[in-house]
Simulated assay, not measured.
Amino acid sequence: MDTQTRPFRSVLYLPASNERAMDKARKLPVDAIIFDLEDAVAADEKLRARDVLDDALAAGGYGMRMRIVRINGLDSIWGKADANVVADMDCDAVLLPKVDGPEQIDALAQHTGDLPIWAMMETPLGMLNAAAIAAHPLVAGMVMGTNDLAKELNSRPRADRLPMMTGLGLCLLAAKAHGVVIVDGVYNAFKDEEGLRAECNLGRDMGFDGKTLIHPAQVDVANAAFGPSVEEIELAQRQIAAFDAAQSRGEGVAVVDGRIVENLHVATARVLLAKAAAIEAIAAE
């Protein structure tokens, strides 16, 4: 399953020190899990968390869910050891916090080899260097760290996220230009379902592939917002059928619901249907 069709609707953070949470995640309908060795783990638990996580990943049971491990920064006292351990873990990618530029990706790769790298985008310098970060051959994904970015900007929280828009847009453009996955930042009020839904819809409209989550209660909302709707699937099927029929008549375009359908619309429709099929496969596990 390639990254263009693989769903990343819901990406759940889990503390790597919490065995119970990691066990429960094996049955959650999430597309990806970020096993966190950084912010979610207290300093006196850091070393134990590595062993707990290694055991959990070795035990398996996560099915088609992408397994991403967030390490501590390489400039911390734990970061390099984290990277060395993660290189031998049964995971799909390593997530590096506070990436300012591609040189930090190079430094991590010295420890993790050819393991795909995801970059936390959460600093002003990272926003300005987003294109260079996304262009790195080992970077497979970008994660918006909106809490840290808000702190760095000294911005106020707003429902429309206006202070975030420049940074979000720069990272989106970089990710789309270089074909890497990009997921939106967390929504902190995990009991506010309507607020989460509104922010998910905004992120989906902008072009994000999914949403990072801090609580399992947020999963269903994110999956619904970032997954193809029944109406979108039906429209995609009609667009493909109409275009195929037009081509059989020697015509280059079709019309569906009063709108022109060209090659580019059909390509988008096929990706949407492939993603819907992948979602069905995950749900059937």
Rank of each mutant, 00 (worst) to 15 (best):
M1N: 04
Q4K: 12
T5E: 03
P15Q: 07
A16Q: 06
N18I: 03
E19R: 14
R26V: 05
K27T: 15
E38R: 11
A40P: 03
A42W: 00
A42E: 13
A43H: 09
E45S: 12
E45A: 14
A49P: 04
A49G: 05
D51N: 13
A56R: 14
A58S: 13
M66H: 12
I68S: 01
R70I: 06
N72P: 04
D75T: 14
D75H: 13
G79T: 05
V86C: 09
A87Q: 03
D88P: 00
D92G: 07
A93I: 08
V94Q: 05
V99R: 06
D100M: 08
G101T: 01
E103T: 12
L108R: 09
H111E: 13
T112F: 02
P116G: 10
W118Y: 15
L125N: 14
G126L: 09
L128P: 01
A132M: 05
A135S: 13
P137E: 02
G141Q: 04
M142W: 11
V143Q: 02
V143G: 01
V143S: 02
G145F: 11
T146W: 00
D148R: 13
L149W: 07
L149R: 02
L149T: 10
L153D: 03
N154G: 15
S155R: 03
D160R: 02
P163M: 11
G167C: 06
L168Q: 11
C171M: 10
A177V: 07
H178S: 03
G179T: 04
V186K: 04
A189G: 01
E193C: 01
E194T: 14
E194Y: 04
C200P: 04
N201M: 14
L202W: 06
G203V: 03
D205E: 15
D205K: 10
M206I: 03
D209M: 06
D209L: 02
D209R: 14
K211W: 05
I214N: 02
V219F: 11
V219Y: 09
D220W: 00
D220I: 01
N223H: 06
A224L: 10
A225H: 07
F226H: 07
F226D: 07
V230H: 14
I233R: 13
E234W: 04
Q237E: 15
R238M: 06
A245F: 08
V253P: 00
G258E: 00
G258Y: 09
N263Q: 13
H265Q: 12
A267V: 14
A269S: 15
V271Y: 07
V271S: 07
L273Q: 05
A274C: 04
A276K: 11
A283Q: 15
A283C: 11
A284Y: 05
A284D: 14
E285Q: 15
